[in-house]
Write a protein that binds this DNA or RNA. Structure first.
Lengths: 202, 202
DNA sequence: CCTACCGATCGGTAGG
DNA sequence: CCTACCGATCGGTAGG
């Protein structure tokens, strides 16, 4: 079936682009993984760049779909911001390739990504920033927080943490075997603590 | 001169690998930029992978050289940690390609990078973590900070901020022309505020 | 025998 | 969707 193959190609391409980079993956390699010929791939996606954009579009569309759900958790107060950050971590952690792909695209095509992030993220960032301002007004949140910059910093940090969860383990983890999971958990706990501590008054 | 050509090749390779990725740059492209033939490049670096490792080694050696200098600033107290974070930002900002290269290598070769980061970074991370513990002992720093995880989180955040300084501008910046510089400065200020606020008691 | 290269070309594979 | 290919370029090596 055509739609099935096209979907499988896009899915495999997402995974391989995320792990080895756009230039590091050949159309042949993608086709082989799916079990079709390169020519079949080129029937569904007439060029490598078309495939790249299809992959990217799907990541953003998934994001646009999930973001409103995540934001429902945020209305006001302490625990809500925590829930949002947790949701953000979970969003990228359930599919770390999504985070890696975004970081790679950000490095490879900064201008295009700036545009796409502005389009897809801007309304939500401004909305959450308004919640922060509300928190500042009622004295729950430190007055010197820069709302928009804070939200972007948290997103950057979560993205970086998930996509390169390798920074941590080697440095934190002891030589023992149990160190990897524990180190990842420590890092994530500290991320949540840090983002909260930088926001709320005690 | 031979040493000169080898050095120029390594320098150009650093820049191009950082901007387009290892797989995205041909030996021909590097050689052309330097003004030598590809064969001359291969005389100095017998394979592309040898060149990759030479580039990476230089970045780490630069890091090993500068880190002790940065750490001299840290003894104790409020302003010292701030100075260290500022130095870290400056270190990567004066050559953003360094940050981009590290992030790319982290995505391309997570295992190798985990090992290299552990070797090169571990002693310094543990040292700064000890300063954090000292701060906790004298009641200057929040007791619930995870010292090692905190230090790594700050490094991750600085690295991510510098290497993908594109996240910000598109979302924060207005359509006007003056927005880019201002947005970058806002983001950096919030980074410094956030790392401090998450550490020190008020 | 060394160094620092050159012009030409190797076998394979890239995207299309 | 496949067979049959292309112009070009890939990383790497030959003799001198």
């Amino acid at each position: 079936m055509t739609a099935d193959n096209a979907e499988q190609i896009r899915s495999v391409a997402t995974q391989l682009f995320a792990r080895h980079g756009y230039e590091g993956v050949s159309l042949q390699a993608i086709a082989e993984r799916v079990g079709v010929t390169k020519q079949t791939l080129l029937y569904h996606f007439p060029s490598k760049d078309v495939l790249r954009k299809a992959v990217l579009d799907q990541v953003f569309s998934h994001w646009r779909e999930r973001l409103p759900q995540m934001l429902e958790a945020v209305t006001s107060g302490h625990g809500r911001f925590d829930a949002l950050t947790r949701e953000l971590v979970r969003f990228f952690e359930t599919d770390a390739d999504r985070a890696r792909l975004l970081v790679r695209e950000l490095l490879d095509n900064p201008d295009e990504m700036r545009r796409m992030l502005a389009e897809n993220l801007r309304p939500w960032v401004l909305l959450v920033a308004q919640y922060v301002r509300e928190g500042q007004r009622i004295g729950l949140i430190h007055a010197d927080v820069d709302p928009e910059a804070y939200v972007l910093t948290v997103i950057t940090l979560v993205l970086a943490n998930v996509s390169t969860n390798g920074i941590v383990e080697g440095v934190l983890g002891d030589s023992g075997g149990s160190g990897v999971r524990a180190a990842r958990e420590r890092q994530q706990n500290e991320l949540l603590r840090l983002t909260k501590a930088a926001l709320f008054k005690r």
